[in-house]
Computed example of a mutant assay.
Amino acid sequence: MSAVTGTTPPRIEARGVTVRFGGLVALSEVSLAVPPASVVGLVGPNGAGKSTLFAVLSGLLAPGSGAVLMDGHDVTGASAQARARRGLARTFQHPELFPGLTVREHVVLAYRLRHTRHRIWTDLVTGGGFRRAPVDEDRRAGALLAALGLTGHAHRPVSGLPLGTSRLLEIARALALDPGVLLLDEPSSGLDARETDELAATLSRVVADHGVSLLLVEHDVELVLGMSDVVHVLDFGVKISAGSPAEVRADPAVRAAYLGAGHGEERTSR
């Protein structure tokens, strides 16, 4: 785990966020902060509101009330694209890839989106740009592929990739954007135990070496507790606990939430 710093504003922050879908309160006055160069975990039983909060933070869903800030600037009304330009990247539960591109081309395209945006049209229409990679671009793409264990798949089309490999590619593509904060939505889904351990080690190195902040949503609670500096727990759209992994692990409210979810309670919030 990395050291949490408190001298600068959080990379991203939710303040009193509330979201309603008709009569359903999906989130109720939820606050959460992701400091620079830190790993923050977000867990909770199915239907607790984790995906809804992710959508609010990334700009895909407007809250009914509350605010979202990035580096101290209010971005509540900003689009997902505007937040990306400020340094926000995210992954999704189901990887969203371009079937006609190779693994390496996905990483190169993301790198150019951040650094040489004017080349994107050529890349997509002619494919010629991929064959003329500057040294820095080639080095960066190669390093990310190696870090995620994807070097052997570099020139393979993404069509037909196993789910676990597709998920690793989506993380590599997000990191190619050089984000200040990365929202990871179920990154270990589809990975076996060895791949999950390697992913955790890779993400920890990214935080330590590049100062990227991570907000991690996971069903694998042990992965979150093992990686995170601070963990927040949602249940039915309400934050019921927050603290160090040890504090959260020992919290009776957290144990009760998971126990209740496993004994047939119907969950309707997102």
Results as ranks from 00 to 15, higher is better:
196 T>M: 08
197 D>E: 14
173 R>T: 12
231 V>L: 03
236 F>P: 02
214 L>E: 08
182 L>P: 07
205 R>G: 02
225 L>D: 01
216 L>C: 08
219 H>M: 10
203 L>F: 09
199 L>W: 02
230 V>K: 01
199 L>V: 00
228 S>K: 01
226 G>A: 07
203 L>G: 03
235 D>N: 14
204 S>F: 08
233 V>N: 07
222 E>I: 09
213 S>C: 14
237 G>L: 00
219 H>C: 15
221 V>C: 11
185 D>Q: 10
174 A>S: 07
194 R>W: 08
237 G>H: 00
193 A>S: 10
191 L>D: 04
204 S>T: 14
187 P>C: 10
229 D>P: 10
211 G>I: 00
212 V>D: 00
202 T>H: 10
183 L>C: 15
215 L>I: 04
202 T>G: 11
197 D>P: 03
180 G>H: 15
204 S>D: 11
233 V>S: 08
198 E>H: 07
225 L>R: 04
197 D>H: 09
211 G>W: 00
224 V>M: 04
207 V>R: 13
215 L>F: 07
239 K>V: 09
208 A>I: 00
206 V>A: 13
190 G>C: 11
236 F>R: 15
191 L>A: 10
197 D>K: 08
220 D>E: 13
202 T>L: 09
212 V>H: 08
206 V>C: 07
237 G>R: 02
182 L>F: 02
231 V>N: 01
174 A>Q: 04
185 D>G: 06
229 D>R: 06
185 D>S: 05
202 T>I: 07
200 A>P: 00
188 S>F: 03
238 V>G: 01
229 D>N: 14
183 L>A: 14
186 E>W: 07
219 H>Y: 05
223 L>W: 10
197 D>N: 08
229 D>Q: 05
176 A>Y: 04
231 V>E: 01
202 T>A: 13
238 V>F: 01
225 L>W: 02
227 M>I: 04
188 S>L: 02
213 S>M: 15
239 K>D: 05
223 L>K: 06
209 D>G: 00
218 E>L: 13
222 E>C: 10
234 L>M: 05
225 L>S: 02
217 V>Y: 06
181 V>Y: 00
221 V>N: 04
186 E>K: 07
216 L>K: 05
201 A>E: 13
222 E>T: 08
205 R>C: 11
230 V>E: 10
229 D>W: 02
177 L>E: 06
208 A>S: 14
198 E>R: 04
201 A>D: 12
220 D>M: 03
208 A>N: 07
188 S>A: 15
220 D>K: 05
187 P>H: 09
206 V>S: 03
194 R>D: 06
193 A>N: 00
239 K>Q: 12
214 L>N: 10
178 D>C: 06
199 L>C: 02
204 S>V: 10
201 A>K: 06
180 G>M: 10
192 D>P: 15
205 R>D: 08
188 S>Q: 12
216 L>Y: 05
205 R>N: 06
213 S>Y: 14
206 V>G: 03
185 D>Y: 11
216 L>S: 07
194 R>C: 05
215 L>Q: 13
189 S>L: 08
186 E>M: 09
190 G>Q: 00
180 G>Q: 10
173 R>W: 05
193 A>K: 04
220 D>R: 11
234 L>G: 12
